[in-house]
Amino acid sequence: MVREKFDQIYARAAERKGGDVALESLLSVALSPEQLQQIPDDRWLAAFSQKVFQSGMSWKVVRAKWPNFEEVFFGFDIEKMLLMPTEMWERKATDPAIIRHLGKVMTIPENARMIHQAACEYGSFANMVAQWPSEDIIGLWQYLKKNGKRLGGNTGPYTLRIMGKDTFILSGDVEAYLRNIGVIDGGRDTKKSQQATLAAFNDWQQESGRPLCQISQIIAFSCGDNRL
């Protein structure tokens, strides 16, 4: 396996995006652990739910409807979500104010339970996320997949990124790059591929001093479709 130095990846990305300043303007900034801890549990549930609904649907349509979701589901208040009986969830899934999809609606109480259980152990779901070490970020992905509903694949990681947790994303461009240099060989979600991917990102983080979110963005910008 031949792994490029991160400064080589950065230089290629900067050239393709119009220079260092232009590239830096495109990069995400992760929140600090202290900032993450301030996010209420209902906002985590809302974010997971929105990303679940966006999977396979128009993101624009989901965003336009989202104020209705907030109203129909009581602002995603965790205690209220846990108290609602199945019949009430089924009725809400037919509400024309939202996107009617029973399977996705039923992820809301499941993910509310996950958040509640983490809050019982850590004080809040945000505390758990904030304390999770970046060098084991895939472990957090696996936690979401195992304990939540429809949070596998990129759904969980994308939600973490949106909420400010430092994480890389295995987008199509990033996955293609990792395959090209031999980090991923076979299924991307196998234990072997995930551990090799995590090791590569941890090495690049040590080398560059950058957060994981920026490393994966820079990799994507260095090799994906160059949309200016």
Rank of each mutant, 00 (worst) to 15 (best):
P96R: 09
I215A: 07
D185Y: 06
C213S: 15
A176N: 08
L140M: 15
I184W: 02
E175L: 03
Q214I: 01
I9L: 06
L212I: 12
F69R: 01
A126L: 05
F53V: 02
V174E: 00
S222I: 03
D42Q: 15
L27S: 08
S58D: 07
V21Y: 07
R63L: 12
E34M: 05
N68M: 14
L82I: 07
I9Q: 02
I99Q: 06
T159Q: 01
P85S: 08
W44L: 13
R210I: 02
D41K: 11
V72H: 09
C213Y: 01
S58Y: 09
S49H: 07
K191L: 10
V61S: 15
D189N: 11
M88G: 02
D225Q: 12
S49T: 15
R100G: 03
D185Q: 12
M163V: 02
L140A: 11
G224Y: 04
W141N: 11
C213I: 13
F74Q: 11
L228P: 14
F201S: 06
K149I: 02
G75T: 08
A118G: 07
E90L: 13
Q117A: 14
R188A: 05
I137E: 06
E15C: 05
G186M: 03
G103M: 08
G123H: 11
S222G: 09
R179V: 02
R161I: 01
Q205H: 07
S49K: 07
Y158Q: 02
G152C: 04
T167K: 00
Y158H: 03
A11H: 10
W204D: 04
R100N: 08
V129A: 02
S32Q: 11
